[in-house]
Design a protein around this nucleic acid. Structure first.
Lengths: 242, 242
DNA sequence: TAGTGGTCTAGACCACTTC
DNA sequence: AAGTGGTCTAGACCACTAA
């Protein structure tokens, strides 16, 4: 399959991760040292280091100079391996089972302001979609999304697409991969839209996620602001190692 | 100072980060390629790769085979103070140059509630420090921290330590390494403490970061709540790949 | 002092993009 | 074909921990 393109260090990391989670090594004592492992897998020491580095970053093992490499028991107790900083998956996939519905408030094509063009790395003369949606989960208003996308990159968006899932369209119809995102999370006072669509009172804060999302080729395709009710949204972030 | 112990690749990453943030490279075009950079810094290509890899993981640059290395413009966000997802460094180190001062509101040892014990993975009979501090940056109130730490693990904390930096104490005096954290970010209405110490008005939301921080050996040592003014804090999170 | 992981090198070769 | 970043090597040397 796609196995052949994986570099050695990833394949070794996969194998070791498997062994560790299946109890292949004693949690109490050190794992074999990197020289032994390099010999076993018939790679150089540097390559083995790189494989082990992945597991360190995943929070599965812990290495200490002069002592050895140890398994971190918390990687079991946390109920599975920690997938790093969560999703760039989109809301629809994120919530899985639950009923997600969208109401489109705005959908047009226009020229971007300087700020939008800058974040999307496009010219001010490149048109963008501007989209506002309210998204409901189990018929409760969950978030107001205000989104900009370059229309030359994300082509053929229709109201029908907006009614369901943009991300699914981008990945399945357009065949792009979504790989990274930059988020800024802040609190804010509610504005008129929040009041109207999220049902916020004057004193109910909102939490806003501003983000730029990138495709596999490094091009940003989404610049958006998502505003949530303070009492219905928590942003979770796991950071491991250095 | 402590500069001499830093490996080359970190020093180079620091230098390049500085240059990028100061506009030392044109955002429009590719940065110098890794071979040129390796020559400039007089290191091997592998070492330069490693330095650049750091910036990639920080979401500052983006590299593409066959094309070059590019700056991600979203790495600039001015005005507000950025807390990168990356750092579990503590506030004092994070803000570097600026004057950080602490006012200790509460400092005692007690038995933890079930919730606190659970997050710190200790028994209800293991005592914890409970600490409340207001932290000032350049004499402006910046954050209220409410912190729990197992007193058996983080020993010998004094008011003097609290006046400056707990993290520095843990790393330099106790010799521990701090490697990972799990954060939850939410917005909230201001309470009496926020009003009194952050100067929040009734309608000014706060942003709260709840976090568990882990040592290199996998033990949690801090469970804390940090409350910030909404107009002075943005949480930044970079998620890359996979 | 022996054994561990961490840094760094100087190169070879490969994969992808653009011309 | 030229230029870029990605992988991998075989080894040197250093830093830390323990017996």
């Amino acid at each position: 399959m796609s196995n052949k393109k994986k570099p050695k260090y990833e394949k070794i990391a996969d194998e070791l991760r498997e062994r560790i989670l299946n109890g292949g090594y004693n949690v109490e004592e050190a794992m074999p040292d990197e020289i032994q492992l390099a010999e076993e897998f018939e790679v150089s020491r540097m390559t083995m280091k790189r494989a082990l580095e992945i597991l360190v970053l995943e929070g599965i093992i812990y290495r200490q100079r002069g002592q050895g490499t140890f398994i971190l028991p918390s990687s079991f107790s946390q109920g599975r391996i920690n997938v790093l900083n969560k999703e760039s998956q989109g809301l629809t996939k994120l919530l899985g089972e639950r009923a997600v519905r969208s109401e489109v408030l705005q959908f047009e094509v226009r020229f971007p302001e300087a700020e939008v063009a800058r974040h999307l790395m496009i010219e001010k003369t490149d048109p963008v979609y501007e989209i506002r949606r309210v998204r409901y989960v189990d018929d409760e208003p969950y978030v107001i999304e205000h989104t900009f996308m370059p229309s030359s990159l994300i082509t053929g968006v229709t109201r029908e697409v907006l009614d369901s899932s943009i991300y699914r369209y981008i990945q399945e119809e357009l065949g792009y991969t979504i790989t990274s995102s930059h988020k800024m999370i802040r609190a804010d006072k509610p504005n008129q839209w929040d009041h109207e669509y999220l049902g916020n009172e004057e004193t109910d804060p909102v939490i806003e996620v501003e983000q730029v999302v990138f495709l596999g080729n490094g091009k940003p395709f989404e610049y958006s602001f998502s505003r949530h009710r303070y009492d219905k949204f928590v942003f979770t972030s796991v950071h491991i190692g250095r």
